[in-house]
Every structure is written in C-alpha cells, then in structure tokens.
C-alpha cells in the first residue's frame, strides 16, 4: 500500500508536468493547426538558458524569467520564419509538421554545439525533501503541481474572460469565421506561439533543477505533450490537464505490479486498449 501511495503521488507530479506541457503544446496546435514538434528543443533551450544565466550568477528566479523570454522569442520566431511562409503558401498541415522536425534537428544540435555535450546541472541548489507518512516528495514536486494550477488556471481565465483570449478561442473553433469577424489571425498566432512556448519554459526550469538538462531532453517532452493533447482532446485546456494526469498516473501506477522494463510502453498499451474500446477518444473536444 505504501508503494501504491508513493506511485500515486509520483503519477500526480508527472501528470502535472505532462499536463502543463500539453497545455502549451495544445494551445498552439488547436489555434494554428500546427504540430509544433520544435516545441521540444525550445523547451530544452529554455532549460539551457536558465542554466546559462544561473551559471553567470543571476539569481534563480531571474534566470527562470530569462528562460521564459527565450522560449517565447524562439516560439514566435519559429512561427514567423518557418510556419507562416509555409501556411501562406497554402500547404497542408503535414508540411508544417515536417518543417518543424527539421527545426527540431537544427535546434537540438545547435544547442550541442553552443553548450557542448553532457548534462548541465545547477550546483548547490537546495530544495526541501518532505515525508508525508510513507510518501516522499520534494519542493520541486510541489512546484510542478503548483505551476500547473497557477499557469493553467491563469490561461483558463485569460482565454475565457479577456477580449484577446476570446479571440484566440474563436480562432480555435473556426479560423475562417474568426477572420470574417475581423480577428487578426496572424497576430493571434504570434500570441499563441509566445504564450505556449513561454508555458513550456516553466516545466523546463523545474526539470533542470530536478534532474539537470541535456540537449536531447526535448524529444520526450514534446512526445508526451503530443500524446497528452490527443488523449485529452484537442483544443481543450481541461482535456490536456485530464490527459496529462491520466498519462502520468497510468505510467506510474501501471508499474505497480509490472516490471519497470515495460515503462515506456505501459502507457501506450493502456492507451491502445482504451482507444480500441472507445474509438472516439477518451474525451471529446470541448471549448476550453
């Protein structure tokens, strides 16, 4: 039972990590219809940016802010330089996806060239370790959950109650209609790339603190974000959150009795079975 509780808690923390990644990725995907795979290396760039700033002696919170800025700038730049020209030419969505893979390879290796090989760790970070009964966790774990609650909630409120946010939602629902009623979809897309990428910087910094950064950390991140979004339902923050937790919990609790050598496929076996039983997906897409 102790193990179950611990695994449950692990599932929650991983789930909130996946969910936050999914929220950012899903926002971009739902609004612009671009499968932005380069979300992964931008996530990695954010972690490296924070590491670089911190190693120059910048206080950690400021380094985090710097990481957010770097991610937002890279996200917007990838839209303006790559995706927009492709979309303007009326290419199908797959093309943007492949271009984003090209960008993925480019950025990941650029990181390797600039920062060299090996793990980047912020030394002498101290964070608290807690024991709640049999369950162990650290303050980073708590931050993972808190960041989802704060940022996810803020985004939810932003999309629901601000003019700008409503325009984004309108574009998510129907791009053509949004254009007809006078929404500047390019501006919205830029905003969405900025917000979505900025969101990814937060879990990136937390992972840097928890496990260190590597140039290839982006693949797993964008991969899980992608699966989270598809499981939860595209175009829905709530869906991404539910999808993220579902994925995190399945991955963690699934290994309660099953050997860990099956770790990377356990979530997919469950997904496979669920989707075969419920072909329309776990949750339909809904607004917000």
């Amino acid at each position: 039972m102790d193990l179950f509780l611990q695994l449950f808690f692990n599932g929650l923390t991983n789930g909130s990590y996946y969910a936050l990644l999914g929220v950012g990725f899903g926002l971009i995907f739902a609004t612009t219809k671009i499968v932005h795979f380069a979300y992964g290396p931008i996530f990695a760039c954010a972690a490296y940016a924070a590491w670089w700033a911190a190693s120059l002696g910048v206080p950690l919170p400021l380094a985090g802010v710097f990481a957010v800025a770097v991610a937002a700038v890279l996200g917007v730049a990838s839209f303006l330089v790559i995706y927009r020209p492709i979309q303007v030419r009326g290419a199908p969505g797959l093309v943007a996806l492949i271009a984003s893979l090209g960008l993925f390879i480019l950025l990941e290796n650029l990181l390797g060239i600039v920062f060299g090989a090996g793990n980047k760790v912020i030394e002498n970070v101290n964070y608290d370790v807690f024991f709640l009964g049999p369950v162990f966790f650290t303050s980073i774990h708590l931050w993972q959950i808190a960041s989802l609650a704060i940022l996810g909630g803020a985004l939810f409120l932003f999309l629901r109650y601000t003019r700008f946010g409503k325009a984004i939602v309108a574009m998510t629902d129907n791009r053509e209609m949004a254009e007809i009623i006078g929404i500047d979809t390019t501006r919205m897309a830029i905003a969405v790339f900025a917000i979505g990428s900025a969101l990814s910087a937060v879990p990136a910094v937390l992972i840097l603190l928890k496990d260190g950064a590597t140039t290839h950390m982006g693949f797993q991140a964008v991969f899980m974000a992608f699966v989270t979004v598809v499981v939860g339902g595209i175009g829905s923050i709530r869906g991404a959150v539910v999808g993220g937790f579902a994925l995190g919990l399945v991955q963690s609790l699934g290994l309660w009795k099953i050997p860990t050598e099956w770790q990377s496929s356990i979530a997919f076996v469950v997904l496979f079975l669920i989707l075969v039983a419920r072909p329309q997906g776990l949750f339909g897409a809904s607004r917000l």
């Binding site: 611990q6 695994l7 692990n10 923390t13 928890k210 496990d211 260190g212 991955q251 963690s252 290994l255």
Partner: peptide
C-alpha cells in the same frame, strides 16, 4: 538517459 526514475526508486 531517462530523467524520470521516481517509479523505479519507489519500487
């Protein structure tokens, strides 16, 4: 190169 080994450690 996995970063998340919490499950393994719990077990």
């Amino acid at each position: 190169g996995a970063t998340n080994i919490d499950t393994q450690m719990a077990k």
